[in-house]
Amino acid sequence: MHISEGFLPGPWWWIWFAISIPVIFFGMYRMNKLISERRELLPLLAVAGAFIFVLSSLKLPSVTGSCSHPTGTGMAAILFGPAITAVLGTIVLLYQALFLAHGGFTTLGANVASMGIIGPVVAYVIYKAGMKANINFYVVVFLATAFADWATYVVTSIQLALAFPAEAGGAMASFQLFAGIFAMTQVPLAIMEGALTALVFKYIVQVKSDALVELKVITSETAEKLRGVVA
């Protein structure tokens, strides 16, 4: 759910920049530290970013007829954590604006806040909580990605509602409206992306679970268990 260029007026677009920029800088700081410790991570992060971009440019099979794209950020948050995802997400959003005409420069701050920061944080929190509660890994992945998508879309609706409050009822009323209208496409889309990401993780576990163990997404015991269940 990208907000198009020029859509947010006056103070709102720079307020969202003011919110996003500190988080991006924190992410850059974390990333710099990680890279200075383990230099082999730099190319890995770069290809991860490219992967998110390509994933987000694939069309999801749609239910309602309009074509829809996965955000990919939920998956990135599970793989790399929210701080790094914020940085990668910012680059991906910039490229999407320049290559695919999704989003824009002035609305970059708002889009980063919804897709690069809040969505991934929600995904990460759910994923951590779910793993702690010992729920099935794939169910956790499904929930984390689906809720990340919903969080993204709720935040986008809030952003639009704050910028354009309704005459009767103010921002709250227009939030319900924007949320209600975008729910038509976003609710099924989030479920699709959750299912897709869970399936992706299933294939990765089957083919090469060491990659996930190395990223500390799952422990080697869980990987063993998951493969055992599959086989």
Binding site: R39, E40, L42, P43, L44, A46, V47, A48, A50, F51, V54, L55, L58, L60, P61, V63, M192, A195, L196, L199, V200, F201, K202, Y203, I204, V207, K208, A211
Partner: peptide
């Protein structure tokens, strides 16, 4: 991609292959 079920499955296969490819590529570039 003949119906919703197969396309979801195919897309998941595509994405996971892509992820593993990119992972290996990342190690090779380094």
């Amino acid at each position: 991609y003949k119906d919703l079920r197969t396309s979801l499955n195919s897309l998941a296969m595509l994405a996971s292959t892509l992820f593993l490819r990119s992972w290996e590529q990342g190690e090779k570039i380094f």
